[in-house]
Design a protein around this nucleic acid. Structure first.
Lengths: 184, 184
DNA sequence: GTCTATAGGTAGATAGAC
DNA sequence: GTCTATCTACCTATAGAC
């Protein structure tokens, strides 16, 4: 055998990483298999050794990327949570979708995807929400906080001017800070 | 002349309406000019009599559709606003993107679009925010409310189960109600 | 203004060499 | 497992008849 036994798993992991970054930056549906593979230093023919179709890749991207997001809310006290949200609502995050959360970049494409992909999405997102809810009081509205920060990053990215982006982010940062403070 | 003088404007308006609905439902980038025109009962050749390119159509869709959204927040007292947000956060709205707000459906595509499109987007969205801010106190966080409801509808649409969708919407409805109440 | 026809390019996916 | 080559389908956009 010309390839070591763990070669395929490693190659798939690298492929998933570069494909996720490109999909978050340019969009999943509008980016061809050719471009997704080129980003990993391969050609399109090799794609189907790792995924049976392009929709299958979207499911894998969501599974892989949302695990990172869930980790953001895991095992953190209120102070650490506030810091995590500051980072989420930063201009850095808005400026770099390729290395950021998949939710502001890919959610509408997930909404139009097959049931299997949406189930993976839901499972991971509910888990993140439960992790956050555990740190809030009963009327803490964890879903509202999540919707707020995801919506904010997405809307900020579509703005034309840095000033408008800053104003939006600043307002939502204050809102989230207040929500985290009053729960103690 | 075989067509009356106002024919072109009317045809363009009808085209914009059906193309907007289809783009919100299926995505703009992934829907071909052929399909967009067929929805209006025409063929693709006629498209370029109304728009000089496909990106130009996205700009027109955003301009046209966001005007509706801005109108939602115009000249309303707190009670009317609360009613408008209830409707925005309804399962009906989540289930029918084609007749709903363009923000939860098309914003990531706007983020990847040209500067002219993003400028139209920003202008309209800031106007909507100003209308809402006028009804809130100084610490009302109009951007936070908008980000919250847009994010909620988008995330709800990507969920697999009706139960998860309902839980998310319910939580955000309560959050928004509280924000509108405490501002008086 | 809308149609059909078509150009030229790229999409997702498969086949066979190595 | 990855490559090149290829198939078929679709894409955006244009040309010319009506």
């Amino acid at each position: 055998m010309r390839y070591p036994p763990d070669y395929k798993a490693n190659a798939r992991a690298r492929l998933l990483e570069t494909a996720s970054a490109l999909a978050k930056e340019k969009g999943f549906g509008t980016t061809g298999v050719d471009a997704l593979m080129a980003a990993a230093g391969m050609t399109s023919g090799a794609f189907y050794s790792h995924f049976k179709s392009k929709p299958e890749l979207l499911k894998a991207i969501i599974e892989h990327e949302l695990a990172h997001t869930t980790a953001l809310f895991t095992g953190k006290d209120t102070a650490a949570l506030r810091k995590a949200f500051r980072s989420y609502l930063s201009e850095q995050h808005v400026a770099h979708p390729e290395s950021g959360c998949p939710l502001p970049a890919l959610t509408p494409e997930v909404a139009r995807a097959d049931a299997a992909t949406r189930e993976v999405f839901e499972q991971q997102l509910v888990q993140a929400k439960d992790q956050l809810q555990a740190q809030l009081s009963d009327d803490g509205h964890a879903w509202a906080v999540i919707a707020q920060v995801v919506g904010a990053v997405m809307l900020a990215r579509a703005m034309a001017s840095p000033e408008a982006r800053k104003a939006l982010l600043q307002d939502v940062r204050q809102s989230v800070d207040a929500l985290l403070v009053t729960q103690e």
